[in-house]
């Protein structure tokens, strides 16, 4: 599975999951969508941080 394929699946699904999570805190679709964009961005940053940690552990224990 190529990196681009994984990203093309992961990012939209993350956004759709965020809609459901953020929707619990709002009463209408407009507010939900606005805050979903921010939440997805924050989750993507956390995803990048997690990947960096895992990559670092891989290099540390398995090698380059």
């Amino acid at each position: 599975m190529s990196l681009w394929f994984r990203l093309a699946v992961y990012v939209p699904v993350l956004f759709l999951v965020a809609i459901v999570v953020v929707g619990q805190h709002h009463d209408n679709a407009r507010d939900t969508l606005r805050w979903t964009v921010r939440r997805t961005g924050r989750w993507l940053v956390w995803t990048a941080a997690l990947l960096a940690c895992m990559w670092g552990l891989e290099i540390l224990f398995i090698g380059w």
């Binding site: 699946v9 699904v13 759709l16 999951v17 809609i19 459901v20 929707g23 709002h26 009463d27 209408n28 679709a29 407009r30 939900t32 969508l33």
Partner: peptide, 19 residues
């Protein structure tokens, strides 16, 4: 009573399931 939000949440679930 939350029609637009319901439609949005439904869309999200159905798209992930269909995918």
């Amino acid at each position: 009573g939350q029609k637009d939000k319901g439609a949005l949440l439904g869309f999200a679930v159905v798209v992930v399931f269909a995918a």
